[in-house]
């Protein structure tokens, strides 16, 4: 925690606030300033930057579910994929308006969450884990076999997206795609930040830390988890829709198990339960992918695996955890006998 103020005044103020203070604010400012900077500095890499924003949104959805509510899932790609196919199919069948497409995709994913939540949250967390895995694979197979609708393994062709707000058409350089993705990410990030700082968000943290106590406090734990599951589903659906709309193509990959696993990797790479962790992890992941996959693809997969193993053994603070630990050490050294 930051040091300033008398503690008596600080105590009530601490409630529900993520650890911020001057350094935190500066870091936040820096993080968001990096996006327009990247936009100006790397005009040739705008599609890559869009990928970062989309991956960040996906990681954010996982953070809401895994990092805050403590529900481990192996099937988050199901929502991503459903969102992508919803937006893609809408556009293929003549409705290319991006914002409503995005909303409908998120709504479809939320609906899937609502329908599957009772199945996932029914038994113990092990059973739930496997159900998420099974549901994800089911959806993948369904999309694979429903080739007349989804295009199957060839992917969904002919996605045409209208200009954003009727003003900005998707250009060849990916300018609109990037700014559109970034705008959606920023809005949904702000919403997520509001949610996790709310009483609902505090209750989710409580459930993750100790569900037994939450029952004893009178919390309808199941209902809160369903809400978190649905919300995370909607976020993943929105991310999928962004991918479909900005690339104007949907491939089966959107539903692959690999994507669920990579999402978790991004999240733990950046740090769990901190919102920014997923964003940072996604940026690191996408850039690393770009750099490493220029070598052989197997190499890339090998290093993802190695990263997962190391992160799992080393604990889940991630990049942000390292930063926080470093800052704490610095403050402790500087503070000396004070405080």
């Amino acid at each position: 925690m930051s040091g300033g103020g008398t503690l008596a005044a600080a105590a009530p103020a601490r409630v529900g606030r993520a650890s911020r203070g001057r350094w935190g604010l500066a870091a936040e400012g820096l993080f968001w300033a990096a996006w327009p900077a990247a936009y100006l500095a790397f005009p040739d890499y705008l599609p890559l930057l869009s990928q970062v924003a989309i991956a960040a949104l996906f990681a954010l959805s996982l953070d809401l579910l895994v990092g805050y509510a403590g529900v481990v899932t192996l099937g988050q790609a199901a929502f991503f994929g459903l969102g992508a196919y919803t937006a893609g199919l809408l556009a293929v069948h003549g409705w290319g308006e991006p914002l409503s497409g995005l909303l409908l995709a998120a709504a479809a994913a939320a609906l899937l969450g609502l329908v599957t939540a009772p199945l996932v949250l029914r038994g113990g967390d092990l059973a739930g884990l496997m159900v998420t895995l099974g549901l994800g694979l089911m959806l993948y197979e369904a999309a694979n076999k429903a080739a007349p609708v989804t295009g199957g393994a060839d992917g969904l062709q002919g996605v045409e997206i209208w200009p954003v707000l009727g003003l900005w058409r998707f250009d060849l350089f990916g300018r609109t795609a990037f700014l559109y993705s970034l705008a959606v990410l920023v809005l949904l990030f702000l919403l997520a930040r509001l949610v996790v700082s709310s009483p609902f968000g505090l209750a989710l943290r409580g459930i993750r830390a100790n569900a037994r106590r939450m029952h004893a406090l009178g919390t309808p734990v199941r209902a809160r988890l369903v809400a978190a599951y649905v919300l995370a589903g909607a976020y993943a659906g929105a991310a999928g829709a962004l991918l479909a709309q900005t690339t104007q193509f949907v491939s089966l990959d959107v539903l692959a198990f690999q994507r669920s696993a990579e999402g978790l990797l991004m999240l733990v790479l950046g740090g769990l339960g901190r919102l920014y962790g997923g964003l940072l992890g996604a940026a690191a992941f996408v850039v690393a992918h770009q750099v490493l996959s220029e070598m052989t693809p197997q190499f890339w997969q090998f290093w993802i695996g190695a990263a997962l193993v190391v992160l799992a053994i080393a604990g889940r603070g991630g990049l942000l955890g390292l930063l926080a630990a470093g800052r704490a050490r610095l403050l402790a050294r500087r503070g000396g006998g004070g405080a």
């Binding site: 978790l264 997969q301 090998f302 993802i304 695996g305 799992a312 053994i313």
Partner: peptide, 23 residues
């Protein structure tokens, strides 16, 4: 450790094993 760690760890092993065999 909790299941998330175990899941990540073992998925990581699978990826490494598959990539190594592929190579």
């Amino acid at each position: 450790r909790d299941h998330l760690d175990q899941v990540l760890f073992s998925i990581g092993l699978v990826f490494m094993a598959s990539a190594a065999v592929d190579w």
